[in-house]
């Protein structure tokens, strides 16, 4: 199945990726070729097959409820592009 320009723009919005008008045709073409390629999965007979989410048949291990992580705010925020008084800044969120 090939994708429409509109579909690709919707996907890009969901993924929060701005798309340059110059690039959009190429993106549509390449994504379409990938979708067409994976379309061959549709033909596989999988009626009674259970989906496999993990390669190993293991169950979740549980951690003791203990505080083990110290405050490392200052070190961690050295990677932050914009902070003030210990909070991360983003353009105003309107609710």
């Amino acid at each position: 199945m090939s994708l429409s320009k509109q579909q690709v723009q919707h996907i890009a919005m969901l993924a929060r990726l701005s798309l340059d008008d110059r690039d959009i045709d190429e993106v549509v073409e390449k994504l379409s070729s990938i979708v067409e390629f994976v379309d061959q999965l549709q033909a596989a007979p999988t009626d009674d097959v259970s989906p496999m989410a993990h390669p190993m048949n293991q169950v979740q291990r549980l951690r003791a409820d203990a505080v083990t992580e110290p405050n490392e705010r200052d070190r961690v925020q050295q990677n932050a592009p914009s902070v003030s008084d210990g909070v991360y800044l983003v353009p105003k969120v309107i609710e």
Partner: peptide
């Protein structure tokens, strides 16, 4: 491209046909 492919195969209306089907073929 991969982020968009992944977004597409998980999105409403396509999840079963792609993601779930792929998990079954993985099995």
């Amino acid at each position: 491209r991969r982020i968009m492919t992944g977004t597409y195969v998980l999105s409403a209306g396509y999840y079963d046909a792609y993601y779930l089907q792929a998990q079954k073929v993985r099995q």
